[in-house]
């Protein structure tokens, strides 16, 4: 706790002097690495890394009953698992508020942008495709949100729609790639003192008083937001963050293509 406080003061002082611990600019991401098809047994998968943070996303289809109010639409669900091997403070157990928040913000971006054509996931009366997006946090070295959103988008880009026959999914036989209408990524900003930075490293997250995540879609559109943490955000700060997020959208979308 005392060490945390020392580190926090150090980071805050550095940021005030216009520097980050690892020498990056305030709006620079760490190197991004995308590995699609990491789990060939899943219908889609992607291991996304920002710096040393690693999030694996697996996409699986199942046949399921539709929701009563949307009988002709497929179902899409996002879940996040904070694997205990990823961080000393992660413990096995039911999802906590952090993992629920992470999954719901990623979900919100994808849903708002209508990235998936859920109408195309109808199979027959009372049966639709369910698409499960599972986010596995494997190594927590800061900025889980953006890494998870990249992993999800990467996995969806990698997803193939399976063949459906005799009321069942035929595994390993595919109709073709999943159609996606957009690119959805997130840019998370942390506020340290009065400065805003992107892609915080762990020590920077400790020094941060709050975060704003902006989910973006192609064409300079915001598709999800989430403010988290104690700090408030002023209108001019919000404005600047939207501009930066639109700019970062291009960089992150490019990283996904590779």
């Amino acid at each position: 706790m005392i060490l945390d406080q020392v580190k926090k003061n150090f980071i805050q002082q550095k940021i005030q002097d216009g520097e980050r611990e690892d020498g990056r600019g305030f709006f620079d991401y760490r190197p991004i690495r995308i590995q699609k098809g990491f789990v060939p047994n899943a219908e889609g998968s992607c291991l996304a890394q920002i710096g040393d943070t690693k999030v694996l996303c697996g996409v699986k289809f199942d046949v399921m009953a539709p929701f009563a109010d949307r009988p002709e639409e497929g179902v899409f669900m996002t879940n996040a698992e904070f694997a205990p091997l990823a961080h000393p403070d992660f413990h096995p157990g039911p999802p906590n508020e952090d993992s629920i928040e992470l999954a719901r913000v990623v979900d919100r971006g994808i849903r708002s942008a209508e990235l998936l054509d859920v109408k195309n996931m109808f199979l027959e009366e009372g049966k639709v495709l369910g698409l499960f997006v599972d986010l596995y946090i494997l190594d927590h070295e800061g900025n889980l949100m953006d890494t998870a959103a990249l992993a999800a988008m990467g996995a969806l880009l990698d997803t193939k729609v399976p063949k459906y026959e005799g009321g069942k999914i035929v595994r390993n036989e595919f109709l073709g790639p999943l159609k996606l209408s957009d690119t959805v990524v997130t840019t998370s900003f942390e506020r340290i003192g009065s400065q805003i930075i992107v892609d915080a490293a762990p020590a920077e997250e400790t020094a941060s008083s709050g975060r704003l995540t902006l989910g973006t879609a192609d064409g300079d559109l915001i598709c999800a937001t989430q403010k988290s943490g104690r700090a408030g955000i002023t209108r001019p700060q919000y404005d600047e963050m939207m501009d930066v997020a639109f700019q970062k959208h291009g960089e992150l979308a490019d990283a996904l293509k590779g």
Partner: peptide
């Protein structure tokens, strides 16, 4: 928070341009 003019909670879904967000605020 009216006194500081800060935004303490911001959640959003939908597809909004920067202008939309500012109009809403």
């Amino acid at each position: 928070l009216p006194r500081t003019g800060e935004i303490l909670l911001s959640q959003m879904d939908g597809m909004l341009s920067k202008k939309d967000v500012n109009d809403a605020f």
